[in-house]
């Protein structure tokens, strides 16, 4: 065959064929793997919500346990009003794209796009586990390099922290990234976000000073990440405190 490989026609033709073939392959792979990827993200979120209450579970079983233990989920506005139609029980399936479902609230997206915290949505998950009721609230903030987030479980009194999990996108390993470790998360247990009905939040302070029941040790060398955790808890938990201290959920 006498095709001139260096002619413009050949080069253009080759490029077109290559792009079409590569595009088709990538599109096919992405479509084939998408269900598995989505399930991973979803199961991880369920796992984190349940882990906040102290439950130990694998990601594979998260979906079943979520259905079993999360008796109720709802969305609040900043002032503690329940968003109309957002109250759901474990009977309601989680449907993709249902904006009224607390599970589908994209905290990271809202944190980035809605500048005023008063305009954001605040999902709340009511978890029944070992004869106790927990209120699990997601928090979302900014670490040193990128996003940090977590789930905080409150006891039935709506004030005492029953457990907390934190994770991060790309904090420094060994420093800020330690927020995802147990030694950082465990001291939150038993701390209180209010005193005598006044909201205090939780302070993440530099190691050293005496701790009270509203503060935990931060990470030496991970100051910005600690500050980010401190800020996201203080900013977010006030909403849940106001709601839980006035709502009928905690009254009966």
């Amino acid at each position: 065959m006498a095709i001139n490989k260096e002619s413009n026609g050949y080069v253009i033709g080759f490029s077109i064929v290559m792009v079409v073939v590569v595009g088709a392959i990538l599109a096919g792979v992405a479509m084939a793997l998408q269900p598995a990827q989505k399930a991973n993200v979803r199961n991880e979120k369920m796992q984190n919500i349940l882990q906040a209450t102290g439950m130990e579970l694998d990601r594979d079983e998260a979906s079943d346990k979520f259905k079993k233990h999360v008796s109720k989920r709802l969305i609040l506005d900043y002032y503690g009003n329940v968003l109309e139609g957002s109250e759901m029980t474990s009977e309601d399936e989680i449907k993709d794209g249902n904006e009224k479902d607390a599970f589908n609230v994209d905290m990271l997206k809202e944190f980035k796009t809605i500048k005023n915290p008063k305009d954001r949505n605040y999902p709340l998950f009511v978890v029944d586990y070992k004869d106790k009721t927990y209120y699990v609230a997601p928090v979302q903030g900014q670490g040193l390099w990128a996003a940090v987030w977590g789930y905080i479980a409150l006891e039935e009194d709506g004030v005492t922290i029953a457990g907390a999990v934190f994770d991060h996108k790309s904090e420094t390993p060994g420093l800020g990234a330690e927020i995802a470790q147990k030694w950082f998360q465990e001291p939150f247990i038993g701390k209180k976000i209010a005193e005598n009905g006044e909201y205090t939040g939780i302070s993440v302070i530099k190691p050293g000073p005496q701790l009270d029941e509203h503060s935990v040790d931060g990470i030496s060398g991970g100051t910005f990440t600690s500050v980010g955790v401190d800020e996201m808890i203080k900013r977010t938990m006030v909403v849940y405190f106001n709601y839980l201290s006035s709502s009928e959920l905690t009254q009966n």
Binding site: E6, V11, F14, V22, V29, L33, A36, Q37, N40
Partner: peptide, 29 residues
Amino acid sequence: PGRIRIIVQLVVVASLVIIVDQVLKAYVY
């Protein structure tokens, strides 16, 4: 074609990397 060989290599590598990334996300999250 020799003139665009680097581009072709880049496209091949880039597609393979995307596939690897997608597979990791799906199976070893």
